[in-house]
């Protein structure tokens, strides 16, 4: 719960109505996090447009419902909030959107500089961000096709490690700052999305376990949230645009399941389903 709290909160908030009735009280308010919870880092692995919708949903939910300041790094300009998102969060106020700061670094060097400067006072006052989102890590890390040779990714691996470590170290530092200021938004979380190279092909299976960049990212991100499209006949027959299976895995899941703080809160669900309707509406279901 601690490690995936924002995503879990998103999933529960946008549960399908029938699922919500099963849960009786919906959605449960997020319990305050224990100060020793540490920073939480989640890697969203899967197809880029679905990941991006989830990241935006997480940003909007964190800002509007949890009052968090959000830094959103992406290469793709966001002109307006997607219609699907406006449908999901009808009560969205412009005030809460102001808590989300979008930043558009063009290169990994610019992204590193912007993340590295988050500790400087203009970025931490009056309150530092407690959610850092990076959309499409691969757009910063992976050289365009043809530039890499014979599968040797040493430079990209080192770059992935540098960026991941900087994100983790920055979140750890901002967590300390938030705790010193007795902010209820502590700890600072990181959610980043990544689409492995192999997944971009038409015949994508699951994300490759041997993707050299993903190997490195998995060292630093405590939780992996894998999106896998359900292409079964039932999905098509149900009249839905898309169904995605969401799997949560990683050391962060194991860590939290063994802590004493889990006694009074729901356990981490390891598997969810995401339904995307033709009008773009998103709903989640606990599997």
């Amino acid at each position: 719960m601690v490690m995936t709290d924002i995503l879990a909160h998103v999933f529960r908030t946008f549960m399908s109505q029938s699922e919500q009735r099963k849960e009786l009280d919906v959605p449960p308010p997020l319990p305050p996090l224990p100060p020793e919870a540490g920073c939480s880092t989640v890697l969203l692995v899967g197809e880029r447009s679905t990941s991006r919708s989830l990241l935006l949903l997480a940003a909007v939910t964190a800002a509007s419902q949890m009052g968090m300041r959000v830094m959103f790094f992406t290469q793709t300009q966001i002109q307006s909030l997607p219609v699907s998102l406006q449908k999901c969060v009808p009560s969205l106020s412009p005030e809460s959107l102001k808590k989300i700061q979008f930043s558009y670094p063009r290169t990994v060097e610019e992204l590193l500089q912007q993340v590295a400067s988050l500790h400087e006072s203009p970025n931490t006052s009056p309150i530092p961000p407690s959610l850092i989102i990076v959309d499409r890590l691969e757009s910063f890390l992976c050289a365009p096709a043809g530039d890499s040779y014979s599968g040797f990714h040493s430079g990209e691996q080192s770059s992935a490690a540098h960026l991941s470590a900087l994100l983790c170290d920055t979140a750890a530092f901002l967590t300390q700052v938030l705790q010193q200021r007795a902010s209820s938004s502590a700890p600072c979380r990181v959610i980043a999305s990544f689409q492995p190279e192999r997944d971009t092909g038409k015949d994508s299976g699951g994300p490759s376990a041997t993707d050299p960049i993903l190997d490195v990212l998995d060292r630093y991100f405590k939780i992996r949230c894998t999106l896998d499209r359900d292409r079964s006949y039932e999905a098509a027959a149900a009249g839905l645009q898309e169904i995605w299976n969401i799997y949560l895995s990683g050391t962060g899941i194991r860590d939290t399941s063994s802590t004493k703080h889990c006694d009074d809160r729901p356990g981490v669900a390891q598997e969810w389903q995401l339904f995307i309707f033709p009008d773009g509406l998103m709903e989640f279901k606990l599997v």
Binding site: L112, Q113, V115, A116, S117, H119, S121
Partner: peptide, 9 residues
């Protein structure tokens, strides 16, 4: 602070 940012990045 600026030097620290430059070193970290």
């Amino acid at each position: 602070d600026q030097q620290m940012s430059a070193l970290l990045s």
